[in-house]
Nucleic acid binder design. Structure first.
Length: 288
DNA sequence: GCCCAGGAGTGTG
DNA sequence: CACACTCATGGG
């Protein structure tokens, strides 16, 4: 059922399990054979690594998929130099090498904003379920049982009560009000703003606080200096650096410590805390 | 049954 | 600026 044509791409280093499974994005699924599938814009994409090659198949066709995937996986990021910069921090230096293939993704701005509004005070399996429900109900069918994430305009015809029936809880009102706020506007107009200004603009939408705004800056607008702080990252900062306190305080710490690539540091710490620490292993301070 | 989650909004000191 | 409280609900 997959399109027979296979694209060969070079995006390296790239670890699909780390990049698509670390919780920064919610719609990719891993198959038994290690391939990953999910919707990308209006295409359904399946990909897997073969050595240093990324093999890609797309349905219903491959028009523009190579360019889209290059942007999505941030092919232009020089991970080696990013890790070199972050390696000034002795804590990070030790644990980063195994995470070389973890790349920050560059999601569609609107899909990212809506996804992270839904993500508030929830957990990843449930977030994925909410997003699939929204896509299935209001998105366009791509192929088989796969649906695109609906544009704000398509989603705006849903009432908060409609969305509530999809299990969104109090997030339903945030989504529907944010859709309304976006009527006749586009997030694209925010692309040129500085990180701080963009962050403040995003926080103007209902349901968007500091954390969600930072996620959207990082994963939706590609601002690598953004450092979203959720409970896991806060826990990591306390455990590895002994720093705790308000969001503003932790954010300032990250900015001073990690600088322009704080977003990558954040994802390393998040992954380490959520996945490795769960198994009582820490890449940044040795096995406990 | 219990605890927790990629928090935000509002009010108060 | 920092804290306290409330908001709803499914997953593990």
């Amino acid at each position: 059922m997959l399109h027979p044509m296979t694209l060969e791409m070079r995006i390296y280093p790239l670890d699909l399990d780390l990049t698509l499974g670390c919780g920064q994005t919610f719609r990719w699924r891993r198959a038994e054979d290690g391939s990953w599938s999910g919707p990308l814009d209006d295409r359904f994409v399946t990909m897997r690594m073969e050595g240093r090659k990324l093999l890609v198949e797309a349905s219903p066709d491959s028009e523009g998929v190579e360019e889209a995937l290059s942007e999505y996986l941030r092919a232009g990021d020089d991970v080696a130099s990013i890790q070199k910069r972050l390696g000034r921090d002795p804590v990070l230096r030790r644990g980063m090498p195994p995470l070389r293939g973890l790349r920050i993704v560059k999601m569609d701005e609107w899909e990212c904003l809506a996804s992270y509004i839904l993500a508030t005070f929830s957990n990843i399996p449930r977030i994925a379920k909410m997003i699939e429900g929204v896509a299935r109900t209001y998105g366009e069918n791509i192929v088989d049982d796969v649906y695109s994430f609906p544009r704000a305009q398509a989603l705006s015809r849903a009432s908060a009560a409609d969305l509530g029936r999809l299990g969104l809880g109090y997030r339903a009102a945030y989504i529907s009000e944010t859709c309304r706020a976006l009527r006749g506007k586009s997030l694209q107009r925010l692309k040129g703003l500085s990180y701080e200004t963009l962050r403040n603009e995003l926080m103007g939408f209902p349901g968007v606080g500091e954390k969600v705004a930072d996620c959207v800056c990082l994963f939706g607008f590609g601002r690598l200096e953004a450092f979203p702080i959720d409970v896991w990252v806060a826990r990591s900062l306390k455990r590895l650096y002994g720093v705790e306190g308000s969001y503003a305080r932790l954010r300032r710490f990250a900015s001073e410590r990690f600088g322009e690539f704080a977003g990558y540091a954040q994802e390393y710490l998040y992954y380490n805390e959520r996945v490795l620490a769960a198994n009582d292993v820490c890449a940044f301070e040795g096995t406990r």
